[in-house]
Design a protein around this nucleic acid. Structure first.
Length: 586
RNA sequence: GCGCCCGUAGCUCAGUCGGAUAGAGCACCAGAUUCCUAAUCUGGGGGCCACAGGUUCAAAUCCUGUCGGGCGCACCA
């Protein structure tokens, strides 16, 4: 944001400052105790439009500290606010709300702010340039991306964009689990395809190996590059080579799939590299020193019947119970290798070295491991001497449907819906927007038949159509020599002001969504803004005088086209954060 | 048995660090519209916010318990 732009105050930000200034003045005058905390004070639009444009609860929140009746305190605050030229009336209502009615001029000025800020309208300094690491997707590199990964990918990506817009530095990170037994399985599966490509009849893919066709090309390439030299070698000879090759191939595949969704990570962190760098050892040493890791015996699982081959063994255990977990957790297996958790713990420590806050986006099937990783980060925070804010966002399962019928999938047979197929069928924008029209922690259905409907019932279409409608209106206006102009925005009346008020919400929606880390709020907001635009448009059906383009009235048309242009700008800014294209025609 | 998430209109879902009379779309009912900016429009009915307690000026929202649904529960990843 340029220096000049940073001096432009959006309306909601300006009023938050104004209320704050009034409270400061009352402190000076002795009506409020010095430096009284104002954390609970809000300035926001009331739900009920008749209550005015903005309302503040300041008097109710501060009444106790001021030892005053809320309504009396409200009167003092209201009196000062009423002196502001942008305030037409400041009324006291209910238990002590202060309702502000703003001047039309103040609202119209917001249009100019949108125009001046353009793509930066809504950008916020809230994050104060602190660095947030968002780790998302992190699917095992054993095959193409499928539906199970999709929601977390989209939510994580939109969240990253949102946080960036809200003033954070953001690291988009993918953790590559290239060190566990699953990648060994992958290597064996690729080896089999290599034998196949070298002319051997491999028959059916044995149970326990990955049967997917996507490994055929990998085998072919390896056969070409390596020749037949590994055909009769023992596994120990070829496994590391095939593992590395296969993982590389899978990550290329995954990157391509993610690109189809418009997702690009900044950092791909390898678990194998982490282990090679002895990061888990370093973490363990530190934890042992602080008595947070000890050698102990794992308890048998309670409640349900223990497995047949259950035997108590001594393992290095992390004291996660000290931080709220139900059980201490092993960081190494009995063969001395790291458990997933042991490596993940070190990985989080590594991430924390580069960031002020961490966010993980996980699938709901990992909910059982949230407590232990939170415990780990809490423990490691102590080592850093500062708390590391850490959030795990769980995204729930998506039930795929087609025309109301659930889609059957079996991962084992390799018969699952991939992201590539999905994007090809319904398009990136539909996938992304639909995934964001539900809060992530609630389960959702995704119906292939419904999401492609080009009708009002379909939120993606509805929002994109609003933008396209604006664009076509501007195009038509231009043909008639009518161009957007701020010269006569005083001609904009009540209906237009309603639209401006809706658009002016955008900056505070961005901040609220960023603070709550809930990108879906943007999607709902855009749906409402689009609704307001369509409603305004419909006025023109019955009253030609309410249309954007009125040939004989270039001043009025210019003002309305300016309005349309700015609404389009806000929709564009919002869709950009969601990674959905603001199309210019449908 | 334990942990996490969810429970809001018939359906799918919103609901701002707790705020004023709980919202939207679909469906339903009634109207409008073939002149137009129609990928339709306007209006209406519909709620014990799962249930029961608690916290306070104020609870769908926070706490406790119960019921219902989903996910998970050894060294897997």
């Amino acid at each position: 944001m340029s220096k000049q732009q940073s001096e432009i105050r959006t309306l909601h930000a300006a009023f938050a400052e104004k209320v704050d200034a009034v409270l400061a003045a009352l402190e000076m005058e002795g009506f409020l105790p010095a430096e009284c905390p104002r954390a609970g004070v809000t300035v926001e639009p009331p739900r009920e439009a008749s209550h005015g444009d903005l309302a503040t609860n300041a008097a109710m929140v501060l009444a106790k500290q001021a030892r005053a009746n809320p309504r009396d305190l409200a009167a003092r605050i209201a009196e000062k606010l009423a002196q502001d030229p942008d305030v037409e009336a400041a009324e006291i209502a209910g238990p002590g709300f202060i309702n502000l009615h703003l001047s039309d001029t103040a609202w119209r000025a917001e249009l100019a702010a949108i125009a001046a800020l353009g793509d930066d309208y809504g950008r916020s300094p809230l994050g104060a340039s602190t660095t947030v690491n968002v780790e998302y997707v992190s699917a095992n590199p054993t095959g193409p991306m499928h539906m199970g990964h999709c929601r977390g990918a989209v939510v994580g990506d939109a969240l990253a964009a949102l946080l960036e817009f809200a003033g954070h530095r953001v690291i988009r990170e993918y953790y590559v689990n290239d060190a566990g037994s699953q990648v060994d399985t992958l290597a064996r599966s690729a080896y089999l395809r290599y034998r196949e490509a070298s002319g051997e009849d491999i028959g059916a893919i044995p149970e326990g190996l990955y049967p997917g066709d996507y490994l055929i090309v990998v085998g072919q390439r390896l056969a070409k590059e390596l020749g037949a030299r590994f055909m009769s070698e023992p596994e120990a000879e070829w496994l590391p080579i095939f593992r590395a090759e296969a993982v590389t191939a899978m990550m290329d595949l995954i990157r391509d799939d993610l690109a189809l969704l418009g997702i690009h990570h900044d950092v791909f962190s390898s678990e194998a590299a982490l282990q090679l760098a002895k990061k888990p050892e370093a973490a363990e040493a530190w934890l042992r020193k602080h008595d947070l890791v000890y050698d102990g015996v794992l308890e048998a699982p309670k409640g349900k019947a223990p497995p047949e081959d259950w035997e108590p063994v001594e393992l290095p255990l992390f004291r996660s119970t000290r931080f709220g977990d139900d059980q201490d957790r092993p960081i190494r297996k009995s063969d001395g290798k790291w458990t997933y958790f042991g490596a993940d713990l070190a990985y989080h420590m590594q991430k924390a070295e580069q960031a002020d806050a961490l966010i993980d986006i996980w699938g709901a099937d990992h909910s059982g491991t949230v407590k232990r990783i939170k415990a780990a980060v809490a423990a490691l925070s102590q080592g850093q001497g500062k708390p590391i804010p850490f959030d795990v966002k769980l995204v729930q399962m998506v039930q795929l449907m087609r025309g109301g019928e659930p889609l059957k999938m079996s991962k084992r047979s390799g018969n699952f819906v991939t992201i590539a197929e999905m994007v090809e069928e319904v398009g990136k924008d539909v996938v992304r927007f639909t995934m964001l029209t539900r809060k992530p922690e609630a389960q959702m259905e995704f119906d292939f038949a419904k999401v492609v409907e080009a009708s009002k019932d379909n939120p993606v279409f509805y929002v994109q159509y609003a933008h396209a409608r604006i664009h076509s209106t501007l195009r038509k206006g231009a043909i008639e020599g009518l161009v957007p102009s701020a010269d006569h925005i005083d001609l904009l009346g009540a209906e237009e002001l309603d639209l401006i008020k809706q658009a002016a919400q955008f900056p505070r929606i961005v901040e609220a969504a960023a603070q709550a880390r809930e990108p879906h709020r943007l999607a709902f907001y855009l749906y409402e803004l689009a609704g307001a635009l369509h409603a305004y448009w419909n006025l023109g059906n019955d009253s030609p005088g309410k249309r954007f383009i009125i040939a004989q009235e270039s001043d009025l048309s210019g003002a309305r086209l300016f309005l349309a242009d700015q609404i389009g700008q806000v929709i564009r800014n919002g869709l950009a954060l969601l990674g959905v294209e603001a199309v210019e025609e449908m």
